[in-house]
């Protein structure tokens, strides 16, 4: 198991919290909560060691986008591929805006 912490500049705190995914094989759990104004923090625990650069690249691409709300993000990963990581985070973010609720 390996843990990583990342930080990004962001806007106002997100409107609500949301959860997507489970800690199952090839999947991950994303917990999104409103962050402190202006800052998004991402805490990752992953079962796969030695892939910090890939994680940083994937998470950077999502949270360096302009105009995002501030989130406190927790990720519990069980070997998800970058595509699954992106999809699960997008799924959770969609729920925080209240547009839709999926599982």
């Amino acid at each position: 198991m390996q843990t990583l912490s990342l930080e990004y500049t962001a806007g106002a705190p997100a409107a609500q919290r949301a959860l997507a995914g489970v800690v199952g094989s090839g999947d991950l759990e994303v917990l999104l909560e409103p962050g402190v104004s202006g800052q998004t923090t991402v805490a990752i625990a992953t079962s796969v060691d030695g892939v910090d650069e890939i994680w940083k690249a994937v998470i950077d691409r999502i949270f360096t986008e302009e105009g995002l709300a501030a989130y406190k993000v927790e990720i519990n990963d069980f070997g998800a591929t970058p595509a699954v990581v992106r999809l699960r985070i997008a799924q959770a973010m969609e729920q925080t805006t209240g547009d839709a609720a999926h599982d």
Partner: peptide, 23 residues
């Protein structure tokens, strides 16, 4: 629920990723 974060205290000691609701 998961945001209460009642997770397993034993799994991290064995290097295993937890789930926020302990499944």
């Amino acid at each position: 629920g998961p945001f209460e974060r009642l997770r397993s205290p034993w799994l991290p000691k064995q290097d295993i990723v937890t789930q926020a609701d302990d499944g």
